[in-house]
């Protein structure tokens, strides 16, 4: 089964992911892609405590995720691939090729970031990386929870989607 959701969320495992998206999509596998978490047992235990027993949580670094991505995509369980930042998602997609859709679920305030939406703050580098994803044909939308409107990032960033540019 194709991965149900590619999500960028700096909170990683939390209610919106596990319950908000997890329940309506019947998610049974979350692949958390993060080089720091992948090498820290304590961090992994922390996140594992927040996931129900019928949901598997895998931790992997970017290089391994690229290598194993086909396995995730073939897994019969509905799944989410989750990164905490734009750079990690971009590195993953650079390795596996573009996907149809990336969900920006939460990138919160930090010095150097500018607010774009209530839950989306971007640094110039992050904005550039998202523009590059969009330019590569990936539909990028901001949507924290399933009941909210999916806001196309090209609207927020003022980028024409690929199909429109080539028309």
């Amino acid at each position: 089964m194709p991965v149900q959701l590619y999500r960028i969320d700096d909170r990683l495992i939390h209610g919106q992911v596990v319950v908000g998206w997890g329940q309506p999509l019947n998610i049974r596998l979350i692949v958390l892609v993060d080089d720091d978490v992948a090498c820290c047992d304590w961090e992994q235990d922390l996140y594992r405590m927040g996931v129900p027993p019928d949901m598997e949580l895998k931790f992997t670094d970017v290089a391994t995720a690229v290598h194993e991505h086909a396995t995730y995509a073939k897994d019969p369980r509905p799944s989410i691939i989750l990164t905490s930042n734009v750079a990690t998602m971009r590195a993953l997609l650079a390795g596996v090729g573009p996907v149809d859709h990336v969900n920006v679920g939460g990138i919160h305030h930090r010095p150097g970031r500018v607010q774009k939406l209530r839950y989306v703050f971007l640094s110039p580098d992050e904005e550039r990386e998202l523009r590059e994803l969009i330019a590569g044909g990936v539909k990028v939308t901001a949507q924290d929870v399933p009941g909210a409107r999916a806001v196309p990032l090209d609207e927020v960033l003022g980028v024409a989607p690929k199909a429109e540019r080539s028309a």
Binding site: D10, R11, I13, H14, G15, V17, V18, G50, H108, H109
Partner: peptide
């Protein structure tokens, strides 16, 4: 952000001497 939440909780814990925290979701 997760980091921001942690900072806020630590600040409040120090400011008010909080020993018990009540939260909603175990995954929250």
């Amino acid at each position: 952000s997760g980091e921001g939440i942690e900072d806020r909780i630590r600040d409040r814990a120090t400011e008010f001497g909080i020993k018990v925290f009540f939260t909603d979701l175990p995954a929250g």
